[in-house]
């Protein structure tokens, strides 16, 4: 059976982890995949830990449970490493992608013995440089695409440009910044 690539997102309410999850579903859909993008809902509020999920596959996946054994985990806020077991069930064949200014080797000790690939990206710095504000979800999305390979990176960049042109039709001045954030993140993500 065709096994989907499963991705789990950890963020804090208001950081755009859910939006990034839905944008990844969009990008994968545009490249011809079957997608699921869904957040886990509860009494969330700004700053509270939230989880969102993607399944991406070549055939429709009918499983509608949450994801317990992801291939990839994306952590949009590094302070979550202290309070959420972000590597729970994570495949050692997969990877975790963390928003931090630290090196992969420096965050590995915080990952409760996870033996797989650890990737880091300073999404905050990239966002502040390219967008002028801390919107970490665009660079995290790009890093997730680069590391997971669920979508062809060149195709992804093209699709996202079209998507931003649509989304920011009334604010075209932010399109270039978002595109810079994407490409910079794909270049700068570090694996260890």
């Amino acid at each position: 059976m065709n096994k989907p690539v499963e991705i789990r997102w950890h963020g804090r309410g208001g950081q755009g982890a859910k939006t990034a999850c839905l944008l990844l579903a969009d990008a994968a859909f545009s490249s011809g995949k079957y997608v699921q993008g869904f957040p886990e809902y509860g009494p969330e509020r700004m700053g509270a830990p939230i989880t969102a999920y993607n399944r991406i596959s070549d055939e429709r996946c009918t499983v509608h449970s949450n994801i317990y054994n992801p291939d990839f985990v994306v952590v949009v806020d590094e302070s979550l490493l202290e309070c959420v077991d972000v590597t729970a069930g994570l495949s050692p064949e997969g990877a975790i992608i963390i928003n931090t200014d630290k090196e992969p080797a420096d965050v590995r000790p915080l990952l409760r013995g996870y033996t797989g690939k650890v990737c880091t990206i300073d999404a905050r710095a990239i966002s502040e440089e390219t967008l002028g504000k801390n919107f970490p979800n665009t660079p995290m999305l790009a890093a997730a695409v680069k590391v997971s390979g669920v979508v062809d990176p060149d195709r992804f960049v093209q699709d996202m440009e079209a998507s931003f042109r649509h989304k920011f039709a009334t604010k075209p001045q932010v399109i270039a910044g978002n595109m810079n954030a994407l490409t910079k993140s794909m270049q700068e993500v570090k694996a260890g």
Partner: peptide, 11 residues
């Protein structure tokens, strides 16, 4: 189904 279907994006 609430959230599972209503808030999940699929093809």
């Amino acid at each position: 189904d609430g959230f599972i279907t209503s808030h999940a994006v699929e093809n």
